[in-house]
Design a protein around this nucleic acid. Sequence first.
RNA 1: UCCCCGAUAGCUCAACGGUAGAGCGGCUGACUGUUAAUCAGUAGGUUCGUGGUUCGAAUCCACGUCGGGGAGCCA
Length: 440
Amino acid sequence: MSLLPSASINTIARHEGETVTLAGWVANRTEKGKLIFIRLRDGTGVIQCVVFKRNVSDETFAAAQRLTLESACRITGSVRADARAPGGFELDVSDVEVVQVAAEYPITPKEHGVEFLMAHRHLWVRSAKQHALLRLRAEVIAAAQEWLNAQGFIRFDTPILTPVAAEGTSNLFATEYFDLGRAFLAQTGQLYVEAGMMSFGKVYTFGPTFRAEKSKTRRHLTEFWMIEPEVAFAGHEENLVLQEQFVSAIVQRCLERCAAELQILERDTTSLERCLPPFPRITYDDAIDLIARRHTDVEGCSPIPWGEDLGAPHETLIASQYDRPVFVERFPTAAKAFYMEPDPQRPEVALCADLLAPEGYGEIIGGSQRIHDADLLEQRIREHGLNVDDYQWYLDLRRYGSVPHSGFGMGIERCTAWIAGTHHIRETIAFPRMLYRMYP
RNA sequence: UCCCCGAUAGCUCAACGGUAGAGCGGCUGACUGUUAAUCAGUAGGUUCGUGGUUCGAAUCCACGUCGGGGAGCCA
């Protein structure tokens, strides 16, 4: 006989007046003499179950008394509307079946510190806010993939174990690879997805990426998930249009389908509702001017000379000037990755852009038009001090039917943190990997 | 790697050179409408580690360990 429930809590209203069996965990319990309130959590929602001593057998009442926080159980009762119940419906209990009585649960409704919660991450994911955040993350991922699929993109998965640094200098995680020496965990799928682009035209890769940077901020993880579209024949302009449509579609879908989660997260959604194309754009040159004029607006923000990359305080200042995401485009070529196409009118800047989320959530997308000329690409590889032999396969993409093409990478955790309005991105992934934390 | 901050009961914190405490959680009991219930009682401590200063150290000093916030780099 199946142990599965006969109804789920998120759609319990459909069962008003019916007797159903729910299966889940005790989110909270209050005993009041001959009356016990059990708030049951089934993964889809939470419902209050009311056990009256007079309405149930002694065994059932005793079972309800045994339930501790997070105990697993199956509860049978009739669904009724009641204004006193959170959510408007409650279960008038007729039977309680204990599946497992939980040991004393370490996470209480009271406050806990970051260290304690991170050490109990495997349990913390059950908590309402974490549940909402991870549900929102799943929606961001589904929205991103389904939107790209609908636009004719093909998912083209790229390797995680790679022979060399895709972008060169950044720190990489290395591991032994049999007799072939060291392998590195991919820090991006971009170079490989370009091979897919030459096969399918419009592709994207989606998966975990790894950076062994010793970053210790609320915007960094050593393992994070990135979705990276790449489009043949697309130039810089088309790339930006694709990005603003993509991001808007994701945000609007989250607003539609995750309203309950955003409410639990106490997210003010008015700024998200404004997130529609076109997004404002500012060139790197104008950004430098803006920083020179307004750097005192943001703490720790100092003027920078032309050629230097923007820091976190600079991004905060720029984003604060706009009410929706903003593109910062045409960075100095020398400060960017080797594969970015120089602006034909001004080779000292590249046809690239970062998309900064509003409200100080920082860079959520980095993208560019890629160099499609084999000679220029090889020259740039040498200028970056990289080994040309390692990139022969990548140069081949420019030798056999090369076309102008563009793409970008969006960080799932940063995007989710922005939409959720969550301060630290560690809460937007189930098990964050950080500089000083790998457990659990 | 650098700068700043912290570590005391299961959790969140107080005690700031002189007897180690509270709230929550746990346990026991009361209660037919609780929403982090309320009320009464009760158990619970190697004050992160090592060394030093002192009549006396949770408290001051040094080193170490672990963690938090930020920078650089990036998504």
